[in-house]
């Protein structure tokens, strides 16, 4: 088993939480893991990405080779497109449709979505709306993780456990909220893939 994942978003949108969940789940399943994170400058509202690799055999490089990622998981639609050169031709894009507009020349969101929809395989979802239904828009990143969950080759229960572990310190309400978000994202993906 081997999954190479690009996580994408804007600094502050919570892609490191997604990475942490997948990482915890991978460790629980005794998989090897490498994760290249972005710290520093670009965390200030800039484009951020993380390379996450999980596999049953040891992993050599911290970076995924171009054109070889199995998945792009993005919490922002334009950011999912920025890493297309990394994606394998048969790879999936799992992206939120909600734009994060913090630059003056952000393109029309329809144009952005059209570009995603031109790709081979994708799931786009209104993660903010789904998260709001679950209780708080703050869990949109976990909704996106839920939508990616059928593609990760990880047991859904280990992902649930990872979410519980990650949010445990924030109280039961927050754990419940994020488990709901994870489930809602997963259901959306199963209906729309």
């Amino acid at each position: 088993m081997k999954k190479d994942i690009i996580l994408a978003g804007v600094g502050g949108q919570g892609i490191l939480s997604i990475a942490a969940c997948i990482g915890l789940a991978a460790l629980a399943e005794n998989l090897f893991l490498k994760q290249a994170e972005v710290h520093g400058m670009s965390q200030r509202g800039g484009a951020v990405q993380s390379h996450l690799r999980i596999a049953s055999d040891p992993i050599a490089s911290d970076l995924i080779p171009e054109g070889k990622a199995d998945l792009i998981i993005s919490v922002e639609p334009m950011e999912s497109l920025r890493y297309l050169p990394m994606l394998h031709r048969n790879g999936w894009i799992i992206s939120s449709m909600n734009p994060f507009v913090n630059i003056p020349d952000y393109p029309q969101v329809e144009v952005v979505l059209d570009e995603i929809w031109k790709q081979n395989r994708y799931i786009t979802l209104d993660a903010d709306a789904i998260a709001k239904e679950c209780g708080s828009v703050k869990s949109a990143n976990i909704v996106v993780l839920g939508a990616a969950s059928p593609f990760l080759d990880l047991k859904y229960e280990t992902l649930q456990n990872a979410v519980m572990q990650l949010f445990a310190s924030k109280g039961d309400d927050i754990v419940e909220l994020n488990l709901k978000a994870l489930q809602a994202g997963k259901e959306y993906a199963l209906k729309h893939s």
Binding site: G45, L63, E66, G67, L81, R82, M86, L87, G91
Partner: peptide
């Protein structure tokens, strides 16, 4: 990175699709 090293080794280099022209830079900001 793996691909730069691949080409120096004379190995075939994998490529994905290009970044669409509509994608704008998103520099960090205050």
């Amino acid at each position: 990175n793996p691909n730069l090293v691949a080409s120096a080794l004379g190995l075939p280099v994998s490529v994905g699709n290009p970044i669409p022209g509509i994608v704008r830079n998103r520099p960090p900001k205050l």
